[in-house]
Computed example of a mutant assay.
Amino acid sequence: MIDTHAHIYLEHFSEDIDAVIERALDKGIKKILLPNIDSTSIASMLELEEKYPDICYPMMGLHPCSVKEDFEKELQLVEEWLNKRSFLGVGEMGTDLYWDKTFWEQQKEAFHFQCELALKYDLPIVIHCRETIDETIELVSQYEGKGLKGVFHCFTGTIDQGKKITGFGFYLGLGGVSTFKNGGMDQVIPHMDRSKIILETDSPYLTPTPYRGKRNEPAYVDLVANKVAEYLQLTKEELDKMTTANANALFFPTEK
């Protein structure tokens, strides 16, 4: 299996990262994809890649919650890194109106800038959208037919929103919310395009049931997989095989 979204380079894991990786491997999670946040997270992310090559794979992007007055300088750094070496994707990027609406126009500008970088380097984008799913679908629709690809990470939208997203050829990232009793995903997941579902944790956040409220970690992809398999009436093995093939198609297309 592949955890397509984990921030295990953060200080939450500084004491026991080796054990965290070991538990993931024990559960059959062979690859862990690391979306960047901003300039402050790059060094620790790349250190983790160096320590665990062929397990930890970094991406490069600017998280919407880090879009502030200096966002142009941050984006310049993203571009410099993408020009300097290879990354698996452009992200974590996107939009967020949950905490603060001050920089909405700048968030949209940063979104378009990073989409153009993704097209230039032929990389998928990893989209964060909180309280902004319809607005973000509209932003992505402007690139229809231009070859933009990617995933709406932590998808918690409606059947209709999911169909719009997969209609663009984009993937839906399913994580801990899929296991929440009142998350509503039991009504949505059965209607998803199965060829566009990938699994994630968003570690250390959004921990799945029964560990909700505690620190999340990549090994818990297994809990998400169990619940998604149940919703789709698949065996766990069938679900693992399907979602791993989907994640490889998006992030490791040359390995097919």
Rank of each mutant, 00 (worst) to 15 (best):
18 D>H: 12
49 E>D: 08
245 A>D: 13
208 P>R: 15
106 Q>Y: 03
61 G>N: 02
224 V>Q: 09
177 V>D: 09
175 G>P: 01
152 F>C: 03
100 D>G: 03
150 G>A: 01
189 I>C: 01
217 E>K: 00
129 C>M: 13
224 V>W: 01
135 E>N: 13
116 E>G: 05
80 E>I: 13
66 S>M: 10
45 M>P: 00
161 Q>K: 07
121 Y>H: 15
208 P>N: 13
197 I>M: 11
245 A>V: 08
172 L>R: 08
255 E>W: 09
92 E>K: 07
240 D>L: 11
50 E>Y: 10
105 E>L: 10
77 L>R: 15
68 K>Y: 09
229 A>S: 10
53 P>Q: 15
32 I>C: 03
17 I>H: 09
223 L>N: 11
28 G>Y: 10
119 L>F: 04
55 I>P: 00
206 L>W: 02
103 F>S: 07
219 A>W: 06
100 D>T: 11
253 P>Y: 11
139 L>D: 08
139 L>T: 14
154 C>D: 06
40 T>W: 01
188 V>Q: 03
223 L>F: 03
5 H>T: 12
219 A>T: 03
149 K>R: 13
104 W>Q: 11
98 Y>W: 13
202 D>Q: 08
226 N>D: 14
246 N>C: 07
62 L>P: 03
44 S>W: 00
185 M>A: 10
15 E>S: 11
175 G>A: 05
1 M>C: 06
162 G>D: 07
171 Y>E: 08
16 D>V: 12
105 E>Q: 13
166 T>M: 11
243 T>Q: 03
23 R>G: 10
187 Q>N: 15
43 A>G: 04
159 I>N: 04
180 F>N: 06
101 K>W: 04
88 L>H: 14
193 D>V: 13
184 G>D: 06
174 L>M: 08
122 D>P: 00
118 A>S: 06
35 P>R: 00
252 F>K: 03
62 L>M: 07
10 L>P: 00
110 A>V: 08
111 F>E: 09
235 T>Q: 10
7 H>F: 00
10 L>Q: 07
155 F>E: 05
98 Y>K: 14
231 Y>H: 05
151 V>Y: 02
78 V>W: 03
156 T>S: 15
116 E>I: 09
82 L>F: 08
182 N>L: 08
186 D>M: 04
37 I>K: 06
193 D>N: 15
120 K>I: 03
202 D>N: 06
83 N>R: 15
94 G>Q: 01
98 Y>N: 15
27 K>S: 14
8 I>M: 01
18 D>F: 03
93 M>A: 04
160 D>M: 09
214 K>Y: 06
103 F>V: 13
12 H>Q: 15
141 S>A: 12
186 D>Y: 04
29 I>S: 11
36 N>D: 05
81 W>V: 07
147 G>K: 06
58 P>Q: 09
215 R>S: 03
36 N>W: 00
207 T>V: 00
83 N>V: 13
183 G>W: 05
146 K>T: 04
128 H>W: 03
163 K>W: 03
159 I>W: 04
174 L>W: 02
231 Y>P: 01
123 L>C: 12
21 I>E: 04
162 G>N: 07
214 K>R: 13
47 E>H: 12
187 Q>R: 14
99 W>M: 12
67 V>W: 11
230 E>G: 10
54 D>Y: 09
29 I>T: 13
189 I>D: 09
146 K>P: 00
217 E>R: 01
183 G>A: 09
